[in-house]
Design a protein around this nucleic acid. Structure first.
Ligand SMILES: [Mn+2]
Ligand SMILES: [Mn+2]
Ligand SMILES: [Zn+2]
Ligand SMILES: [Zn+2]
Lengths: 137, 137
DNA sequence: AGTAATCGTGCAATGGAAGTGCATTTCTTA
DNA sequence: TAAGAAATGCACTTCCATTGCACGATTACT
């Protein structure tokens, strides 16, 4: 049993063939991926299965959704120690206007905001759009 | 000719009956509105007309889009002196998890971020989710 | 091993929202 | 008033997210 399978089991996710492949694909990507991306990568697999695979991964804290404003949800692997599930890992996301890829800026946290009286923050999302390191070179 | 008509003309938008109504509706709302909201408010009007009305308003700097992460685009009137069109009015938006309404926090600008080397910011979006002033009372 | 229960997968269908093409109506202007 | 431009209405399309249901695979239990 390989390391991915062990990892999935540690997250209480049964390591099926499809799940191993999806995890591997996500791990190889250094950018966030849409369901469509994954669908293209595994043409043989059914869309629903991939959809539910991502849902499962999300519930178990293996991936987090990335809403970069393009209108299609993306997913990225949670880093070790990521606390997305409890809303404590509010890192930035960057969307490149050139290559259209979206990256987790895991080290960059959303800055603290002083809200007006009466407003209570529970969650936040911050996306920066511009030119990524690969495209600005 | 009323003040709204004069205002629309100052923005190079012909003040048709529909546009006056939509503008008035937006002005009376103190939260961002979806196309669907407006559609419901004016059941007799055609959705496409409302859609294009908003597009026109947006192009002319009368409203700006609000992407609050709910998956449906919202619109809000630009305040006097709003510079959305040139990307210089990066104010915060707040989405209430209780009443589901989204508000422009016009006075609260998105804080400056130091990006990693190679990344160039051109635009940004920041949404805070939580409980609004009306729901936290 | 045998059986039931649970979980994963595949297929078909739905639904919401954005967006487009084209004919028709309304408005502007000469 | 007639020509041209702009706005409107209707029909359709597309895209993506999501669900219901049936079937296949895996696990748990006796
Ligand atoms: Mn991320
Ligand atoms: Mn706003
Ligand atoms: Zn790029
Ligand atoms: Zn509220």
């Amino acid at each position: 049993m390989n390391t991915i399978a062990i990892f999935l089991e540690s997250k209480k996710v049964r390591p099926t063939a499809m799940r191993l492949l999806v995890y591997k694909y996500m791990a190889q990507s250094n950018v966030a991926r849409t369901l469509g991306d994954i669908e293209n990568a595994f043409a043989k697999a059914d869309r629903t299965t991939l959809y539910r695979t991502l849902k499962t991964f999300e519930e178990k804290g293996i991936v987090h959704q990335v809403d970069d404003g393009t209108g299609t949800i993306k997913y990225a692997l949670c880093e070790a120690g990521c606390n997305c599930d409890i809303g404590r890992d509010l890192h930035l996301h960057f969307h490149c206007n050139n290559c259209r890829e979206t990256t987790c800026l895991t080290e960059h946290k959303i800055p603290q905001i002083n809200l007006p009286d009466g407003y209570i923050a529970e969650d936040m999302n911050m996306v920066i759009k511009g030119i990524c390191e690969h495209c600005s070179g």
